[in-house]
């Protein structure tokens, strides 16, 4: 019996309406789960003293993967922020690539172990690297989009950031310019409620981050970041708009950061356990699996095979990365200037 909106959302076939096949959403779920499992492995490795640092995607996989599937991951550009494990996986980064960056090995395609983990960048997959102070990626995304416009390419520059980053000047400057120039940019703010320890109410006074779009003269929407299909729909509309030359959009996905800020942070000093536990019940990795089961897409057999395959992939990648060579100390002199 359907007696709540939540249950209705589960029962109703929403993905077909969005033009997504059963296989599409199974692939979406697979990517979300892989992001989660890689992240969990990173924590284990950190706590075992094998990797120096973890900064997590947990709680944001639904938004990250839902959004990426609405883009052309073979042609569009993405400027992710440090939690975007789900995004970079969807754009073609592999588990092995990610493990190599976790271990900071020479083969790490992101920076050869030269940057902190989570500074994603991979030329062949059009994943554009960022810096450590937050939000530097936003004006970069706008510059890339200006290039698309000048070259009349129907590509999208997809940039993500946390809600904390939406307070940086770079956000304002980038969003304003993109809108003035009607550039094909999608600004996706993953609102996970915390900027390290500072809760949303201490960060912003507006009701929604997407309200800021009004000031830039672009559409702004807030969607449930725990619902990959809702995020997919919003990003798809924004991408279509961008490709039609109608300019940028601001999308806010609301979910919750399920882990401390990083492996160096202890969140017990600033938030109640009850709050975290309540958020875990809305975790997209669980609720989306539930949706797939309701629609007989994620059968027991499919699920078991998926878990087994994934565990093997992660084990192999971990082993490979652990045994891979570190960068030679002498290579520190490389790439300071062109030869």
């Amino acid at each position: 019996m359907v007696n709540t909106d939540e249950q209705k959302k589960m029962m109703e076939n929403r993905h077909h309406r969005l033009g997504l096949s059963d296989n599409d959403i199974l692939e979406m779920y697979r990517t979300m789960l892989l992001a989660r499992k890689i992240d969990e492995r990173m924590w284990l490795l950190n706590r075992a003293g094998k990797i120096p640092f973890v900064v997590s995607c947990q709680g944001q996989e639904g938004a990250q993967v839902g959004a990426s599937f609405a883009l052309d991951t073979k042609r569009d550009y993405v400027l992710p922020y440090y939690r975007d494990l789900g995004v970079v996986l969807a754009f073609g980064m592999t588990t092995k690539d990610l493990m190599l960056q976790g271990f900071a090995k020479a083969e790490d395609p992101n920076s050869g172990g030269r940057q902190m983990p989570g500074h994603f960048g991979q030329k062949k997959n059009r994943i554009v690297t960022g810096s450590s102070p937050v939000t530097t990626q936003v004006p970069h995304a706008v510059g890339i989009a200006l290039g698309f416009k000048m070259e009349q390419k129907d590509l999208v520059s997809f940039v993500t950031l946390g809600e904390g980053s939406s307070n940086q000047g770079d956000f304002h400057e980038g969003a304003n310019f993109a809108s003035v120039q009607k550039l094909p940019v999608i600004f996706m703010v993953q609102n996970n409620q915390y900027a390290i320890s500072v809760p949303l109410t201490k960060q912003v006074a507006c009701e929604k981050i997407s309200d800021r779009a009004i000031g830039y003269g672009m559409p702004g929407v807030t969607v449930d970041g725990n619902d990959p299909l809702e995020v997919y729909q919003a990003v798809k509309e924004a991408a279509d708009r961008a490709r039609r030359g109608e300019g940028p959009s601001l999308i806010e996905t609301v979910s919750y950061r399920l882990t401390p800020h990083s492996s160096d942070d202890d969140d017990r000093s600033y938030r109640e356990r009850g709050e975290v536990d309540a958020a875990k019940e809305k975790d997209a990795v669980l609720t989306f699996a539930h949706y797939l089961r309701e629609h007989n897409i994620l059968t027991e057999q499919v699920e078991k095979t998926m878990h087994d395959e994934m565990n093997q992939i992660i084990n192999e990648a971990t082993e490979y990365a652990e045994q891979a060579a570190y960068a030679e100390p002498a290579s520190i002199y490389n790439y300071v200037y062109g030869e």
Binding site: P52, P329, V336
Partner: peptide
């Protein structure tokens, strides 16, 4: 220190 960007961890001790 040498005239490079700050060393990655494995090079830090020698840098």
């Amino acid at each position: 220190a040498p005239d490079t960007v700050y060393a990655f961890t494995q090079a830090e001790e020698v840098w």
